[in-house]
Design a protein around this nucleic acid. Structure first.
Length: 499
RNA sequence: GGCCCGUUCGUCUAUCGGUUAGGACACCAGGUUUUCAACCUGGGAAGAGGGGUUCGACUCCCCUACGGGCUGCCA
């Protein structure tokens, strides 16, 4: 059913020793990548929590790298000093950790690399691939306004592009790339296919601002190159940026990594996913009770497919995940499917691991922590809880019979089950249970026998029994509860209820 | 405005010129049942619109509509 390991046939030669690519300042950021090794990265801006869309981008990068024995790197794009906070950075790391995505090495700070970015800009200046532009921002803005009003192109053509050095004033300047104006540029995108634009609509973008700080477009390229990134998998809002970035790669003589621009995720209404759709932070889904494995499965399948493969483990996903399986159109986020997948992952999870994640859920959702006793009984009872819960919220409700203690206080609907007749039958049951052998078949036999003596079917007595044991009308099977609770506790609860 | 990308059941998707357009979630009906579930059986449900190309288009090309992105000395 699962295809054999697929490889992506877009190997790229790494780190050719071009003149400009020679190591400068702190170029060697990570260990040299082995030939053919896949290196991906996730590069969030720390301006808020980890968004669902970002999480899926990270997941694709992780899956792709891990499935090929490659590395998955993290780079924090914190050059926006006003919005980048340590708290946000941590929130993103926490989100990734919760989702179960592990990265290699230390996350890189883009801000810290500003000197290296500036150095590359200056190198381009030295080779004539960039030039000094003395136009002021006010001038440019005025030009654009006029162009807009006249309905002309707002592409700014700097008058300094062809001015000789001797004509340069002694004034602050920005460094702009000398973009090609003839011909066309095409990007071979692994998702979008070949996309081409004519060069006449590219402007000489600024590389280094007049205050000496690098611009995002430059920083991304330099960092990706220095990190030896082989595959850039990111949101398709960057597709047109890719053309601009390619100019920088070309100017530096650097190999362009494989690009894969994946569509954004929409809300259920088909609009861009935003706060008004409810939770957009990945971590919120932990508090809502979704297991990380379910989330991973769901997010992987959102925008990517492999035939009819719907429910899978990480290992299975890694074995077949490839860029060509990524869809070109945006997908809508749908809680129902997430819920279904979550329930199935809970059902097949290892009991101890599941309990561990359940405890993290309790903490994240502000529920009381487990006592040592509860922990032990829950572990024993996990087998019957997990097969019928779609989320940890449901699991928590089913586990009420374990989390509560005597005397069990029935809720209204459970109390309604405990009428006088039922209580009488329960009291008849206790002596039977005193001697019954404590396994599912024997218990069922005993209960059915007592019910039969009153001319009742099992169903009639299961209700009161459930009410006595759990205090609820929703719980695991009554026999499973007896098994998990043990003989003494079971009889005690029945006696409480009968009395 | 210019350039670029997208559009198959309600939702996620399969199809890579020839299928009664398949699967999953959800929904509806029936069955089973110690609750909620789970499970079993069945059902309704789709190629944005219009032109081409072709013996034959969901699939290739063009136009339109709608949605999205970029167009900054933001990231």
């Amino acid at each position: 059913m699962i295809d054999p390991f697929l490889f992506y046939p877009h190997g790229q030669p790494r780190r050719q020793a071009t003149q400009l690519g020679r190591p400068m300042v702190n170029e060697r950021l990570t260990a040299m990548s082995a030939p053919g090794e896949v290196v991906t990265r996730f590069a969030p801006s720390p301006t808020g929590a980890l968004h669902i869309g970002g999480a899926r981008t990270a997941l694709f990068n992780w899956l792709f790298a891990r499935g090929r024995g490659g590395r998955f790197l993290l780079r924090i794009e914190d050059t926006d000093r006003a919005r980048s906070t340590p708290e946000n950075r941590q929130a993103i790391l926490d989100g990734l950790t919760w989702l179960g995505l592990d990265w290699d090495g230390e996350p890189l700070s883009q801000f810290d690399r500003a000197p290296r970015h500036a150095e590359v800009a200056r190198a381009m200046l030295a080779t004539g691939r960039a030039y000094k532009c003395f136009s002021s921002q006010a001038e440019i803005e005025a030009f654009r306004e006029e162009a807009r009003a006249a309905g002309r192109s707002t592409l700014f053509r700097s008058p300094w592009r062809d001015e000789p050095e001797s004509a340069h004033p002694d004034a602050p300047f920005a460094i702009r790339i000398r973009a090609p104006r003839d011909g066309a540029t095409t990007i071979a995108d692994a998702v979008q296919g070949e996309v081409t634009i004519t060069n006449d609509q590219m402007d000489d973008m600024v590389l280094l601002r007049s205050d000496g700080t690098p611009v995002y477009m430059l920083a991304v390229v330099v960092d990706d190159h220095d990190m030896s990134v082989t595959h850039v998998i990111r949101g398709d809002d960057h597709l047109t940026n890719a053309f601009r970035q390619k100019m920088i790669y070309d100017a530096m003589g650097w190999p362009v990594p494989v690009m894969a621009h994946v569509p954004l995720i929409f809300g259920p209404d088909g609009k861009k996913l935003s706060k008004r759709h409810g939770a957009t932070a990945t971590r919120d889904y932990q508090a809502m009770g979704y297991p990380a494995a379910g989330m991973r499965n769901y997010l992987t399948r959102l925008g990517w497919s492999h035939g009819d493969m719907e429910f899978f483990t990480d290992a299975q996903a890694m074995a077949v995940f490839d860029l060509s399986g990524i869809n070109r159109s945006p997908a809508r986020f749908d809680l129902r499917k997430l819920e279904d997948l979550s329930g199935r992952h809970i059902a097949v999870a290892d009991d101890a691991a599941l309990l561990h994640e359940f405890e993290a859920f309790l903490a994240a959702s502000g529920r009381p922590a487990l006592t040592a006793d509860q922990h032990a009984v829950l572990l024993r009872g996990m087998y019957c809880l997990k097969e019928r819960a779609k989320t940890f919220v449901e699991l928590y409700e089913k586990a009420h019979f374990i989390l509560t203690s005597r005397p069990v206080v029935p809720d209204d609907s459970a109390a309604a089950q405990l009428d006088t007749v039922s209580r009488g039958i329960l009291s008849e049951l206790t002596p039977q249970l005193q001697t019954a052998s404590w396994d599912k078949d024997s218990l069922e036999e005993s209960v059915t026998a007592v019910a039969g003596a009153h001319g009742l079917k099992l169903g009639k007595i299961a209700g009161p029994l459930r009410a006595a044991l759990a205090g609820r009308t929703v719980s695991p099977s009554v026999f499973d509860m007896m098994l998990v609770l043990g003989r003494d506790e079971t009889i005690a609860r029945l006696t409480d209820a009968a009395g």
